[in-house]
């Protein structure tokens, strides 16, 4: 069946077979390999994307049900001008070890700072609890999240 959806602002009509997940369609049919395939059961958050305004695990979205949806993946965070501030903060803070969890963490952090720009450190921790990092890099990830938050606040200041 053909499913029409918006990914990172671009409309795609994509052939979807059977029970494919949105994650599969993003990676294998649209060539967007940022969202990662790890647990396939919503435990690890490596496949996190923004789906119609909500942060979700794309492995748990049935692609056939994504008709009409608007999706943002890590590829849609930055633009031609460069990295998204959250991505830049991850680079600056060295919040990347093996990198497998990084796209999901970047999308989750960017989504949180967009929806809750004043999140406290505890709220940041809770908001990122669904993104597992097996290199145990959470300290640097949280420093990056806070740095991105401060940067955003400075930008917004008059």
């Amino acid at each position: 069946m053909i499913v029409t959806l918006q990914v990172n602002g671009r409309s795609h009509a994509v052939e979807v077979a059977g029970w494919e997940s949105l994650l599969w369609v993003l990676r294998e049919r649209l060539g967007l390999r940022g969202a990662k395939d790890a647990c396939l059961q919503g435990e690890c958050g490596a496949c996190s994307v923004v789906f119609d305004g909500e942060l979700v695990c794309s492995c748990l979205v049935m692609a056939a049900d994504a008709e009409g949806a608007e999706v943002t993946t890590v590829e849609g965070l930055g633009d031609a001008g460069g990295l998204h501030p959250v991505q830049q903060a991850f680079v600056d803070e060295g919040a990347v070890q093996c990198g497998y969890c990084t796209p999901g963490l970047a999308v989750a952090t960017a989504h949180l700072l967009e929806t809750h720009p004043d999140a406290s450190l505890d709220e940041l921790r809770e908001a990122l609890a669904g993104n597992l990092c097996r290199c145990t890099g959470y300290g640097a990830v949280l420093r990056a999240a806070v740095a991105a938050q401060r940067g955003g606040a400075e930008e917004a200041a008059p």
Binding site: G18, W19, L40, G42, C59, L60, M62, D65
Partner: peptide
């Protein structure tokens, strides 16, 4: 929400004919 169903689908435990 798919949080139960898609786990079964992804692990090939379930292949629903009609959804």
């Amino acid at each position: 929400g798919g949080t139960d169903l898609m786990v079964e689908v992804n692990l090939s435990h379930l292949r629903p004919e009609t959804v």
